[in-house]
Simulated assay, not measured.
Amino acid sequence: MYLETPRKFRGLVNQANQVARAVLRPISRKYDSREHDYPVELDMLASLLDAMNDGAGSGTGAGRLNTAKGDSQTVVNGSNLSTVLGLTELCWGDVGLSLSLPRQGLGNAAIAAVADDEQMKKFGHLWAAMAITEPQAGSDSAAIRATAKQDGDDYIINGEKIYVTSGERADAVVVWASLDPSLGRAAIKSFVVEKGTPGMEVVRLEKKLGIKASDTAAITFTNCRVPASHLLGNPNIDVQRGFGGVMQTFDNTRPVVAAMAVGLARAALERTQELLKAQGIEPSYKGGLYQRPALEKELLVMEAELESARLLTLRAAWMADNGQPNSKEASMAKAKAGRTANAITLKCAEICTVRGYTEDELLEKWARDSKILDIFEGTQQIQQLIIARRLLNKSSSELK
């Protein structure tokens, strides 16, 4: 199967690749060794990327889910698809730096997914991080304990969030909190908390295995007061629907993370092929797979795995643009791409031996960077659980 990039996005893809090649790759090692230093070189890219995003307001955050069904002859190639295409190229350059681009935060996807038009005007221009994970609530988003109690025209937020990507640098944080913990996941809502709001404090920056150019923060909220207008989506608690509104965020962000994984895996595989070609090793596409030498077989299998991950990612994003429910497909793309990126980057480091393991090449860095792509936005196990629920038509209480 061969799918062409839509003509209107080819310029965007080319620009993103040029940014990755000319800006991100050259400083990749620099900020890997200077964890928590802000990559000042990225500031000049912010306005360019804003223009590239076709008015969506965010590259990493993707666009709004298109709820217009349209007819079978209508095909929409919108901001979700353009985001995954552009971000694949940027992460071919560097994942951590891509996550550090101003106004390209994962929290922007939460805003794009469920905000109304007025909220989009107010928050769409901000660089927004997303705060979901807590010390006692990791992959199970429904287990969060942060609370948001209504007080007149405000909500008062209390709780602690960890592993907040760009939590220190972003202009705002989208915080998941419960209006009433006794009502379970149905009461979980998301709130925009702008930087500098009293009661919000960045208490720690994490030291990490990979994506060191990106800051990862722990944030506490102590009687943090935000206006009621900062609650994204419907403020009413619908026990029957659960927390589908806030979970819609993941239908946008999981294809985005899958795109990151595809870009990173492609970088590792292409560099490995370059190094092997210089040694006279180039795979042949003639004959059966198991008639090839072992090394050639490894390369061909990695190519096939990468292509399958890429196509799943494009499908999930395309479905979002065309108003088709994509929860299952978003999880399939995230699970496949995250697992594939881990496998390919590690295998490439192994194949290239000393050059793959030392800092002479970016291969060892890419192997470290890839692990987070199989963890954040839902681990491999969580994605498989979601896929099983969708395939079997089971609720979260029926299939745990």
Rank of each mutant, 00 (worst) to 15 (best):
K212P: 07
Y285R: 14
V239Q: 13
F191Q: 02
C224H: 07
V192G: 03
G288I: 14
S229G: 09
P283N: 07
L276F: 06
G244S: 04
E282F: 12
A265M: 07
A213N: 03
V202L: 06
F243C: 13
T220N: 01
A258L: 06
E274F: 11
S284E: 04
C224I: 12
N234S: 12
Q279L: 14
N223D: 15
A261I: 09
F243K: 07
V202T: 06
E270C: 10
P293N: 11
E298W: 03
G210I: 06
T253R: 02
L275F: 09
E274D: 13
N223K: 15
T249W: 00
N234Q: 12
S284K: 12
L205I: 08
L209D: 15
G280N: 11
R271M: 14
L231Q: 00
F221Y: 15
S284R: 12
E274G: 03
S229F: 09
V202M: 00
A265G: 11
L299V: 00
L264R: 00
I237Q: 04
A265H: 07
Q291D: 15
K207P: 00
S214N: 13
G244K: 07
P235V: 11
E296Q: 03
G288N: 15
D238M: 04
V246Y: 08
D251R: 07
Y285V: 01
V202A: 10
V239P: 02
R266P: 04
I211E: 09
D215K: 04
R204L: 06
Y285D: 13
K212I: 13
D215E: 12
P293W: 04
V257G: 04
E282N: 14
T253H: 02
A278Q: 14
E296Y: 05
P198N: 12
M260G: 12
E296S: 06
G287D: 06
T272F: 05
E201N: 14
F243W: 01
G242I: 02
D251N: 02
V202I: 10
P283W: 03
K277R: 10
E296A: 12
T222K: 15
A261S: 15
L289V: 04
I237P: 00
G196E: 10
A278L: 02
I211P: 02
A217E: 04
T222H: 15
V226S: 06
F191H: 08
G196Q: 11
G242Y: 00
V203L: 03
I211Y: 11
T249N: 01
V262D: 10
L209N: 15
Q273G: 05
G245I: 12
L205M: 01
R292C: 06
G244Q: 00
T249Q: 02
F243P: 08
T272D: 03
V203Q: 01
Q273E: 15
R241C: 10
S284V: 05
L276W: 10
L276D: 08
A261E: 00
Q248A: 14
L231W: 05
T197V: 10
G210F: 07
K277N: 07
K297W: 01
T220S: 09
T272I: 05
S284C: 05
G199Q: 07
E274H: 09
A259V: 00
Y290H: 13
E270G: 13
M200W: 12
V193L: 03
T216L: 05
L205R: 03
N236T: 14
M260Y: 12
Q279E: 15
G245F: 11
D238N: 01
L232Y: 08
K286H: 12
